[in-house]
Design a protein around this nucleic acid. Structure first.
Lengths: 250, 250
DNA sequence: CATAATTGTTGATCTATATCAAGGTTGTTT
DNA sequence: AAACAACCTTGATATAGATCAACAATTATG
């Protein structure tokens, strides 16, 4: 196989609408491999609320979120549900080497995913160490996030859980960068109360009550149902129970 | 660099006391790489209760559990603790590319770890794709386990949590293979009530009460403080709340 | 052997969150 | 504009698990 020197400039144009370029696989790929990735890539769109795959169903692709938010959830026989993954743009879904999805994958908002057929993706992975290395890095990040989440589920109060979730979304929501002017953060909460309750291991009534409590105390302001304003991020952070300095991992 | 054809037979003798051979990195390594791993490998022993590293402390090695059990925990400022990882023999600890430990690593029982200095390990990883691939596979397994754990923390009752933990340990404890004669499983519970409570997000009193309840109902028998007998594994499984068929991931 | 330390059990009580129930907002359809 | 659906809020009450407290069993120590 002939190897071509990396041509970051040129391929970044070839696949500029693909978030994989930034976070998943293409970062330092070589151009010829990248071409293969381009060939097995396709896009799928979902409306808010739609299911991408059900747990146990065949899933013959891996994918990266382009826009919108996807969730991974597990359901018990009697209907109790727990969200176990929250995928924001550039996050990766699907496990190389597994035929079926272990989780329900759902579009929390309108969603566009960039999909790669699994078989060819795996073959390219074998030939392109960087892809595997990048995927390892991303998986380790996700594992750290899952562990932070376990602390939240196991030990935090309802109030701390809500404050934590708002901070997590505020930190990750790219759109907020724009309005972070005078220390005030403004962004759309992309989850329903029910989705929040599934994330936090609470009921939706408890979520609603704690949101109201934070609102009454001025820790957050709400405009409409979903728009959130955090007047003083550090003050909200104090309600999360987390170390003030500890780097967030989500 | 000259490449040598894999010599599985010969190197499996070279490092036969190293669990990494089986699960972490050596599986399909080539002999010359393996020699390097041998050179940077060393063993460390800890007594039950000892701390391996504190969260935030420098950790300049990655390691694999040889014998015993190690735990990863997070602590909040006010002392609330949540276990976020349970490492049994052959499990891997430490993150390539990170200087400090994100968690308290503790010996739950007497413990022997096989350590690799991080810098050289990372260099070998770069040159030996199989090591990275194996590590990715293990990390994905851990992520699945973490997500199963999140369901437990967020949605299961105390009784279900206890039953789940006993089943998880029963399944993974190698020693039980020996006594699985007439459908009855016998093994040592390697965790104190307090460690169990940190795993499950409960208090130790609740753990003790639920253990007593399961004992009174004949779902488990106890001999001494730690030895557990499960007379009917399937019956205990029904108490976990999990799908009867769903493959366990831990 | 007696004493202390560690670990586990059980009881009484409290409380955070779940559950059950009603009503309020917002946005959409006709 | 009325009717409806989806989503959210708030109140009353119940309850699982936490907390506080005492004691029992086991192991270690002088």
């Amino acid at each position: 196989m002939t190897r071509v020197t990396p041509k970051i400039q040129s391929f970044s144009q070839e696949c500029k609408d693909c978030p994989i370029r930034h976070r998943a696989v293409c970062a330092r790929c070589e151009a010829d491999e990248l071409t293969h990735l381009e060939q097995i890539k396709y896009y799928r769109s979902f409306e808010a609320g739609q299911t991408v795959v059900w747990a146990g169903d065949r899933m013959d692709f891996v994918a990266s979120v382009v826009t919108g938010i996807a969730t991974l959830s597990q359901t018990m026989e009697d209907g109790r549900r727990q969200m176990v993954g929250l995928l924001l743009p550039s996050d990766f879904a699907g496990r190389p080497g597994r035929e079926t999805s272990a989780y329900d994958v759902t579009a929390a908002t309108d969603l566009v995913m960039c999909c790669f057929r699994k078989k060819p993706f795996e073959e390219i992975m074998l030939r392109t160490p960087h892809i595997g290395q990048r995927l390892l890095e991303m998986t380790l990040d996700e594992l750290d996030a899952a562990r932070e989440w376990m602390l939240l589920l196991g030990r935090k109060t309802a109030r701390e859980k809500i404050a934590s979730l708002i901070c997590i979304i505020a930190r990750r929501d790219a759109s907020l960068q724009l309005s972070a002017s005078d220390g005030e953060l403004r962004f759309d909460l992309p989850l329903t109360r029910e989705a929040m309750s599934e994330y936090l291991g609470l009921t939706l009534e408890t979520v609603s009550r704690q949101m109201s409590a934070l609102r009454k105390e001025g820790l957050i302001l709400t405009e409409g149902k979903r728009q959130i304003v955090i007047p003083d991020f550090d003050r909200l952070l104090e309600e999360t129970g987390d170390d003030s300095d500890g780097g967030f991992l989500v």
